[in-house]
Nucleic acid binder design. Structure first.
Lengths: 337, 337
DNA sequence: CTGAAAGCGCTAACAC
DNA sequence: GTGTTAGCGCTTTCAG
């Protein structure tokens, strides 16, 4: 029924080794044999079994990707880039979508192990100790993308989140704002949570502004988190004149809240996001934000993983450049009142 | 190095068959053997090789998903749902992201064949004849999700696009609009392109309104397509008072164009989208749209595929209910001039 | 209820 | 250049 390598060999009048050689593009095959094999393959519509190949070669041509949320544009962009790179080299990708369900993580890791994946890109950092232990002594190479994990020295590809948040806050400060609020990300996240908050605080401190904890709200990267936290912020006696959010989605939520409550943006309040997802330039006013080059990070992540798979030397820490995207959600402010 | 089934068998003092039986949860294993095997597995941290399993059992526990664009929220939602269902049954998913690169499609199909995937969910319909032929006589079950393909009788899971577009247009008509424009999708797409345009036309016709071709523009589901087509529409002598777009992304693009040009929405022009992606309720004004239940469609798609894999009888055509989501982008219009 | 043994379809070392 | 052969790690009859 299924046509296999023997069938091709028979039809082409050669041995299975020869067939294997041409299938895998090895040299040392005469032109004549090669042509006959190729003809046989075409006529029989032969397609090698990846299962058998994996078993024999101990390689799966599979890359696992562990991602917190597929519907998040930022991750979708990264995965798109990874998939693109991978498919050029005939690697396939297995998507493991955690969806904030930490129980799934270990299950996924085990599954990936069973599949003999050649490598894994991890974009999720709220991993528990069990998973951490698993990662420490797992058989396949792992690369961290957009995350960093304490006491786990794995290569990671990141922008400098602290500096990026510093730059964003500083931009608001340069515009003349003095009461700048922050809607942070999940503070269990080192990268997107803690680091960005740190950058915000450093900018304020360096500008000689005292940090007002009532201006700092924690969100979980969702639209609603931005919206609801903004509501609270707006009820403050001494309202902020600018808000920096740790994600575009939250920034847009916050911005919409302000507009729904009758404020003008950016006339009354300025907003700054983080990520630069498509939506940022689609909303009105267009959102100023920090550009985190998702596609580039994806590409570099895959290449780094590839290097690791090939036992090449790699840097433990790769920093990708971020940049500020200035659009229409921030306004200069004059200090007279 | 790698611990395999023999090691477990030895440690547990049983044969490999017994180990295999408990790993696969078969009955006919004594409690005692079972416990000993489980203990050995735990201590050895044994994890079966999927490659070997596939080879021996002729099943891969792999589902292929062919998707046009991962960064499109609608597809991301569908995949999330599929992945969720699949992972419950220990299936993994392989993502094949076409990105409008039709050459990749056949390559992917071949790859999936090599992997012995147990089934494929196809969400892309601009397939060429070569791929079509491949699909006709491929070895694994295929299910079409959100698409329909001519002369290829494969089970498909869809909303009734024509009726949905009819309902959307009709809603605008009921609001009193008489000049309703449409920004259609890619007219090479039967489902999202042609069917939705048909529904629009039928609504107009049934309302006794002559179809004005200058009010119909073709887009390709992108933001810019909405934006640019709207520009053209706005330059018409006799401007539309309402616009129906075949996707939310295009509707938002069109809406933004109108606002950028100084029009008020919905006061001057009403907008209606299609899909009901998150962004629709995030933009201001909130976009009225057709809800296409992505998660449900994803779930049903997977279950249908599962049934097909198990040779169960299945309907060739499964229709999922759509609904209208009325928000703030459409306004009633009085007919006085 | 359990074990022996024959593959699953391919790769890769080795011999020619 | 090419063929032979021994696995890769598991499932699955078939005996017992």
């Amino acid at each position: 029924m299924k046509v296999k390598i023997d069938d091709v060999a028979k039809k082409a009048g050669v041995s299975i080794s020869t067939v294997s050689r041409v299938v895998n593009g090895y040299e040392h095959v005469s032109k004549k044999s090669k042509e006959r094999v190729e003809k046989a393959i075409r006529e029989l519509e032969y397609s090698p079994s990846q299962a058998a190949r994996s078993l024999a070669s101990q390689k799966s041509k599979l890359i696992g990707i562990i991602v917190p949320d597929l519907t998040n544009q930022y991750y979708a962009n990264m995965i798109t880039a990874i998939e693109e790179e991978a498919s050029k080299l005939d690697y396939s990708i297995i998507i493991c979508n955690i969806q904030e369900n930490m129980k799934k993580e270990l299950k996924y890791m085990k599954m990936l192990k069973e599949m003999w994946v050649d490598g894994v890109i991890l974009m999720h950092e709220k991993i528990n100790d069990e998973t951490k232990k698993f990662l420490m002594d797992c058989s396949f190479p792992v690369v961290l993308s957009s995350v960093k994990i304490d006491d786990l020295k794995l290569p990671n590809i990141n922008i400098n989140d602290e500096q990026a948040a510093f730059d964003a806050t500083n931009y608001l400060l340069e515009l003349g704002h003095r009461r700048v609020a922050m809607i942070s990300g999940d503070l269990r996240d080192i990268t997107a949570g803690i680091s960005r908050l740190k950058g915000y605080k450093r900018a304020l401190t360096e500008a000689g502004i005292k940090i007002d904890e009532s201006l700092i709200k924690e969100g979980y990267f969702k639209f609603e988190d931005g919206y609801n936290n903004m509501k609270t912020l707006l009820m403050l006696k001494d309202r902020p004149t600018a808000v920096f959010a740790a994600s575009d989605v939250m920034a847009i939520g916050a911005m919409n809240c302000a507009m729904d409550m009758g404020f003008e943006v950016p006339e009354d309040i300025s907003f700054m996001g983080f990520d630069n997802i498509d939506m940022a330039s689609v909303v009105r006013p267009r959102l100023s934000t920090v550009n985190q080059p998702a596609k580039l990070i994806g590409q570099v992540s895959f290449r780094t993983l590839l290097n690791k798979m090939n036992d090449k030397m790699i840097d433990e820490e790769i920093v990708i450049e971020h940049s500020l995207v200035k659009r229409n959600s921030c306004k200069e402010v004059n200090f007279e009142g």
